[in-house]
């Protein structure tokens, strides 16, 4: 009986269903795939546990969708948080998917920051995702990413 059930569960329809769920399970999975596929994994392994990442809309990445010059792309990040002594964002790491060096910056916030907000200008070599990982004070890690089109390589400007 058990064996029959097992056989039944492996029909074509159920396979299609499970593939669908895999695709729909979203960017959390995508992120771990990126990490596995590139040098990113090495550079992130000593920062946080990449398996515990949670996709979050609390992270807001402000960056143009299209940048002509990859040498100076305006970039700002804000994570929704009350920023109290017991509940605050401690670190925000920024990574690039395809730059020669994947790490962009790491911001360290304290409850004295008031807002988990920072703005800077970044270099991007080509069209790619910019990935943000926010570490909360209680150990949770949230992630978000944004795609940007880049025309001129910003890492080799003369």
């Amino acid at each position: 009986m058990d064996e029959k059930l097992l056989n039944n569960s492996l029909t074509r329809r159920s396979m299609l269903g499970s593939v669908g769920t895999l695709v729909l399970s979203g960017t959390g999975l995508y992120f771990t795939e990126i990490l596995a596929a590139s040098e990113l994994k090495q550079s992130t392994s000593n920062l946080f546990d990449s398996n515990a990442l949670e996709d979050s809309s609390r992270i807001k990445i402000h960056m143009p969708e299209y940048a002509y010059d990859g040498g100076r792309v305006p970039f700002s990040i804000e994570v929704e948080s009350r920023m109290t002594e017991t509940d605050y964002v401690s670190h925000v790491h920024v990574f690039s998917e395809s730059n020669p060096f994947p790490r962009v910056a790491s911001f360290h916030f304290t409850p004295h920051s008031g807002r988990a907000f920072a703005r800077t200008r970044i270099r991007l070599s080509t069209s790619q995702h910019v990935i943000v990982v926010a570490e909360m004070h209680n150990g949770n890690t949230l992630t978000a990413r944004k795609w940007i089109e880049v025309t001129i390589n910003g890492c080799k400007e003369d």
């Binding site: 730059n99 907000f117 800077t120 910003g154």
Partner: peptide, 21 residues
């Protein structure tokens, strides 16, 4: 109160804006 580790991918003349209580 605020620390940033910068890497190669930060533009020349690094600009940093942040907030403070």
């Amino acid at each position: 109160v605020f620390v940033v580790e910068l890497h190669e991918a930060i533009s020349a003349n690094p600009l940093i804006q942040f907030s403070l209580v």
